[in-house]
Design a protein around this nucleic acid. Structure first.
Length: 392
DNA sequence: CATCCACAGGAAGGACGGGGGT
DNA sequence: ACCCCCGTCCTTCCTGTGGATG
């Protein structure tokens, strides 16, 4: 018994020695140095520079896949701009996908500008005019960063962008410039031409990091985050390779390294070896699935359970029938096939099931559906929900 | 080689709940 | 008190379609 206790404490002591600054691997951390992005940084800085002598900078559009440094670069440059302006320039930042809706995007902007608005109840138009009024009354200059702007445009429309791109007419002494960040290279297609020509005054593309670049980024971060020698080079290489094969996403690479460190810590290993990394890779994926699964609405859960009855996969018609039975049995309202078809598409997007369109010629066209979740996880999900207990 | 199945998935709109302004 | 707005889920109605089959 004594040995066991000592062992745990010993692990904790060693584990503590593994990390020296864990924050350096957190998703919000913006490193002092942003490698391989000097060109983008200076271009953005040049576009924004006129702001410091009171003239409106061009609007700017940043493109690039997730984890290519768009957000970090934009935030860093904009923050410096705000610092240099002695408080004359405000730089609100909103990630439209994270806040979720048009309304919340606007109220978040308002909040960051110090404009008080109720968190619901107003019309979009009212919110927009309050924001403009607020800016106007303070005589402020604003450089607004809208992250994942493609989400906003695709889920809603470009009305908000239209308002902001013609803000010049409504804010007379100051200005409002827009930096849009998009993961999607084709999102411009759905844009109103007037918005496009204004928003796209300047454009900048962020290419994915190569495996070699990821390797350098990771070792730089590791040097800050971990005690010297805690992360062997082979681990860094593997981590870069894993993330590199998935479109050069630096955020994911860093996240993976952090989890690997936590695994090593928990297991009391003296260093973060390749095995830790592989375990971390599994864990990240499992966590993602579990998170998505457990937070599903009831109907979606029932559909997943219905899908799980077909061990070799099913199609939309079959699944709908099974779902209907299941829902009836538990006294839950039965949705239409159209809705179920929509939910199937959502579940596919979440990676919880795999749905591929197949054509069976004269016997129609449907989706071949397979669940990607093991029974054990599924059972745990059903146990969480009182209404689903019967299905076990 | 046209046909026709079994759906896919877009468009519009409705019910409902949370919350305004005046 | 009354009417308005938004977001979330759904429904209804609809047009579109890959390819085995007759």
């Amino acid at each position: 018994m004594k040995d066991q206790i000592d062992e745990i404490f010993q692990r904790a002591k060693e584990g503590k020695a593994l990390f020296q600054d864990r924050k350096a691997l957190s998703p919000e951390y913006i490193p002092e140095n942003l490698p391989f992005r000097t060109k983008q940084i200076s271009e953005i800085a040049e576009v924004l520079a006129p702001a410091l002598h009171q003239s409106k900078p061009s609007n700017l559009l940043l493109y690039g896949k997730t984890g290519t440094g768009k957000t970090a670069v934009a935030r860093r440059v904009v923050q410096r701009l705000a610092d240099q302006s002695n408080g004359t320039i405000q730089t609100p930042y909103v990630n439209t996908r994270i806040v979720g809706t048009e309304y919340r995007t606007l109220s978040e902007i308002a909040a960051q500008l110090g404009v008080e608005v109720p968190f619901t109840g107003l019309s979009i138009g009212e919110l927009v005019s309050r924001i403009f009024k607020g800016i106007q009354s303070k005589g402020a200059n604003v450089v607004l960063v809208l992250d994942e702007i493609d989400y906003l445009v695709n889920s809603y429309n470009d009305d908000i962008l239209y308002e902001f791109t013609r803000a010049g007419e409504r804010i007379t002494p100051g200005f409002l410039s827009l930096i849009g960040i998009s993961n999607n290279l084709t999102f411009k297609e759905g844009l109103d031409p007037r918005v496009l020509s204004s928003l796209g005054e300047e454009e900048l593309v962020f290419p994915p990091y190569t495996t070699e670049e990821l390797r350098l980024i990771l070792s730089e971060r590791a040097a800050v985050a971990f005690r010297p020698g805690a992360v062997p080079e082979a681990t860094i290489n593997l981590c870069a390779a894993l993330a590199g094969s998935e479109h050069g996403d630096a955020r994911r690479a860093v996240d993976l390294l952090r989890v690997a460190g936590e695994v090593a810590e928990r297991e009391g290993k003296p260093r973060v070896d390749e095995e830790c990394l592989r375990k971390a890779s599994d864990k990240v994926e499992r966590d993602r699935i579990q998170e998505a699964l457990f937070s599903l609405p009831l109907q979606n859960k029932i559909i997943i359970l219905a899908a799980s009855k077909f061990s070799s996969g099913s199609n939309t018609g079959e699944l709908y029938l099974a779902y209907t039975n299941l829902a009836r049995k538990s006294g839950v309202e039965v949705l239409t096939q159209r809705r179920v078809s929509g939910i199937i598409a959502e579940l596919d997007l979440l990676g919880l099931i795999e749905a591929t369109i197949v054509s069976k010629g004269r016997r129609g066209r449907t989706k071949r559906i397979k669940i990607l979740i093991d029974d054990e996880t599924l059972t745990r999900m059903a146990k969480e929900d009182a209404q689903l207990l019967d299905f076990l």
